[in-house]
């Protein structure tokens, strides 16, 4: 139990970017655009975040907020980069998977290229603080067990993730915009016939998706790294897709799946201290999210859980 408590900050640290990026995927897929490019957008966000943080950290005055400025930079960079996905898939009717794959490859090239231009090396300079941990949150950290698990010695970004989950749920399931967004992902032709501008809704959704994935990338680098390198994101964008599926394209499902995947990844580190799990190799824990997602896909198949029209190219002149 003690180990479980000490493990929890790591779980939350790993889970935060997964959850936020998966929410990004949720917006885009619910509107009908498959976003394979999450990984690439996270890379761009992570690079922008680390760069801005490094450059601002030494400035007097704003230096203390450099980490948060980094997240903002990641968000903006994510929006700009996802614009490429939006234009190619929505306006130019590119195959979503192919465009996303191209953007993933482009991201790894362009971020390291910019590192070489700005810092003269294949990585950013390392930042000193990034985002710092909160030692203990007043009142809440006094709650027995949970207080120690969740509310002390934790990065504040996890609370942003939880707020974003609530916000996403509200926006997608309780507002008019959300209804339109889901309509575009289920049946764009029908949505258009009742006067919804499918192109506009999809553009907005993909850009929101970019904002979330970009800031997720920045948060990931600024909390768990010391600089941006080519392997900073190492497949978390794809784990986010897995979390999206495992969470049945639902914000709360995404939250649960994200924490669960964070748990399996933390177990990879901690397993050597747990008698029974010691026997299992660390690769086993690393592979869990992917294997379970395949299993989940099999279980979900036949029931319609995902957005029906995700991945279909919408052309208003076709019926």
């Amino acid at each position: 139990m003690k180990l479980l408590i000490s493990m929890f900050p790591t779980v939350l640290l790993v889970a935060t970017p997964i959850i936020i990026a998966a929410l990004g995927g949720l917006f885009s897929e619910r509107s009908g655009i498959v976003n394979i490019a999450l990984e690439g957008i996270m890379m761009v966000g992570g690079f922008a975040g680390a760069t801005v943080c490094v450059l601002l950290e030494s400035q007097p005055g704003i230096g203390a907020y450099a980490g948060w400025m980094g997240i903002l930079a990641g968000l903006i960079a994510g929006v700009v980069y996802s614009l490429l996905l939006a234009v190619s898939t929505i306006s130019f009717k590119a195959d979503h998977t192919i465009a996303g794959t191209a953007l993933n490859m482009l991201a790894s090239g362009i971020t390291v290229y910019l590192c070489q231009i700005i810092f003269g090396q294949q990585r950013t300079k390392s930042f000193i603080v990034g985002i710092s941990k909160v030692k203990r949150i007043p009142i809440l950290s006094n709650i027995p067990i949970i207080g120690k698990m969740i509310f002390s010695n934790v990065y504040p970004t996890i609370f942003i993730a939880v707020i974003l989950v609530l916000f996403t749920y509200f926006l997608v399931f309780k507002t008019r915009f959300g209804l339109r967004l889901r309509a575009c992902g289920e049946n764009p032709q029908a949505a258009e016939s009742v006067g919804i501008n499918v192109y506009k809704v999809r553009y907005i959704s993909v850009l929101i998706s970019g904002a979330l994935a970009g800031s997720a990338g920045a948060i990931m680098v600024l909390t768990s790294g010391i600089q941006y390198t080519i392997s900073s994101i190492h497949g978390v964008g794809f784990i986010a897709i897995a979390a999206l599926i495992f969470g049945k394209w639902n914000p709360f499902g995404v939250l649960g799946a994200g924490i669960f995947f964070g748990f399996s990844s933390a177990l990879g580190v901690y397993a050597s201290m747990i008698p029974i799990l010691k026997l299992l190799p660390s690769e086993f824990f690393a592979a869990i999210p992917y294997v379970l997602t395949v299993v989940a896909l099999i279980i979900f198949s036949g029931k319609s859980v995902g957005p029906k029209a995700a991945g279909e190219i919408f052309d208003s002149s076709k019926r």
Partner: peptide, 19 residues
């Protein structure tokens, strides 16, 4: 990385062949 940028841009342009 310019090599990677060129090759991924080529794929991107093939992807938007509609345009």
């Amino acid at each position: 990385e310019i090599g990677e940028i060129i090759s991924s841009s080529i794929v991107f342009f093939v992807a938007i062949q509609h345009a």
